[in-house]
């Protein structure tokens, strides 16, 4: 599985949505991406990529695209 596939899977599982909803998706834009969903998303991403995200990155992760940017620049995960 590629990094992008794992990243997408983390979102889909955390929010119980399909891949076609991911592009442009923002925090609190859908009911399942609330504060609880955000915790689940972070847990999924950390497990998928075997990382521990810093608190400021968890706060900054406010969209599907922003998450990729954070993982690329701060955790050396390439998409």
């Amino acid at each position: 599985m590629t990094n992008l596939e794992m990243y997408k899977q983390a979102f889909c599982e955390a929010f119980e949505i399909t891949e076609d909803k991911l592009a442009g998706l923002k925090y609190q834009e859908i009911p399942s991406w609330d504060s609880v969903g955000h915790m689940n998303l972070v847990a999924n991403i950390e497990e998928a990529f075997d990382i521990m995200m810093d608190t400021e990155d968890i706060i900054d992760l406010n969209s599907f695209e922003k998450g990729q940017e954070i993982l690329s620049s701060n955790y050396d995960i390439k998409f």
């Binding site: 972070v42 950390e46 521990m52």
Partner: peptide
Amino acid sequence: TQYISKLMIR
């Protein structure tokens, strides 16, 4: 607790 609770969330 911030860190460990994330392990529990999974």
